[in-house]
Every structure is written in C-alpha cells, then in structure tokens.
Write a protein that binds this DNA or RNA. Sequence first.
DNA 1: CGCACGATGCGCT
DNA 2: GCGCATCGTGCGA
Length: 211
Amino acid sequence: MRRYVNNLKSEKGRYIPLTKIFFQCDTLTLAEKLLGVCLVHRLKEGRLIGRIVETEAYLQKDPASHSFNGKSNRNAPMFGPPGRAYIYFTYGMHYCFNIVGGEKGRGEAVLIRALEPLQGEARMRKHRAQSSSKKTFQLKELCNGPAKLVQAMGISADRNNTSLLSGSLRLMSLPRASSEAVVRARRIGISKGQKHPYRFYLKDNPFVSKK
DNA sequence: CGCACGATGCGCT
DNA sequence: GCGCATCGTGCGA
C-alpha cells in the first residue's frame, strides 16, 4: 500500500510524501511552501491529483480567522497538530478545505483556494456535476475556487481533523519549476483583516481563482 | 469582461 | 437575527 503511493510518478518527477518536518515553520511560510505541492486522493475508481496553485493563511490575532475568538467546536481542528485537514461548511451549501499550520494550539491554518488538475480530470468533472447546478465544465473551472476543489476532489466532511501525511487523502511534493514566481496579495472574500497580504499564488497560472 | 444577487444552513452574539 | 474564508446566473458595457 505505502510502496504503491511512494512510487507514484509524474512527468515532472517522483512524488514524495510530506512529513512533519515540512510543517515546522510559521504559517505564512507554510502557505507559500504549499504552492506546487500536490493533493492526492486515492479512490477505488482511480487517483485524483491536483497541484496547489493558490493559498491563504489564517493566523493568530487575525480577525478574519475562524480561530480569532478562541477555540470552539467548529474550529477545534485549527488548534490541533499541523498537517491535518480543517474542513468547514459555509454559506449553507459549500465546504472549504484547509491545512492546519503552526505549532499545536496556535489556531492557524492555510486555506487551499485553487488546484491545477493533474490526474483524474474526467472524475473531477463527474464530482462537480454531482455537487453543482452546473453540469459541464471547462478544465479551468474544475478546481479554481475553495469550494469547487472540494467538490472536484471528492473530499467529504468526515475528513475533517484527519492527517494529510498518510492515508488515502494526502499531500505529496513535486519539484516546482523554478520559473514559477510567487505573487503575494490580499485575501479574497473576507470583510475583516482585508489589508493583510496573506494570499499566495503562482504567477500566470491559469488555474488560480482570481487575479 | 464586471457587478449584483439569490441560494441555503449553521455558528455565534 | 446577522453574517459568512462561495458559486452560478443574469444583466449591461
């Protein structure tokens, strides 16, 4: 089982599972480091792979963060160890996927805002059609938003608070092309903490949700 | 292309 | 009640 995943290759090189070491940094650094990392979901029908191209950090003392008012039932995963998923329900119909960062107890996470589909495009389309009023999708529309990528990747709410370092939904690194510059900008869709430049994306990547 | 708005359920004051 | 780390549609430029 483990060998099967570790031997996963792409035209860009061999995938390497992330370990705890990767998360021993501050959450802003983590948000930037996650660019180019791949999210791999192994399903019985096949494997879905998306490369992270856009992230946002949510920190301590950050009024835009769910953790701003302390620990609660909903945000508890943010206060757990880094490398786990924090998945929350919003706007009465959408789920968003985060990766917990920082030291345990800080209450920080990185929102994954967009993926570049690398593998399993047909099934991603199927998943999106099942979860949306829309039924046909351009490649660019599959994962260019936080709730869209959750649909496309088939991530369900019961993954909340589970590790992304092992198991069927996990993070795998891939060498990033050095030509890809990182852009740092303001976060999207928030009313508080708007001035902080806590959003990161790969410059000129067509799968980013917004310029 | 941009902007406005409705859908829809839950956490929190 | 209010607001929400969103999405899709519809309209106008």
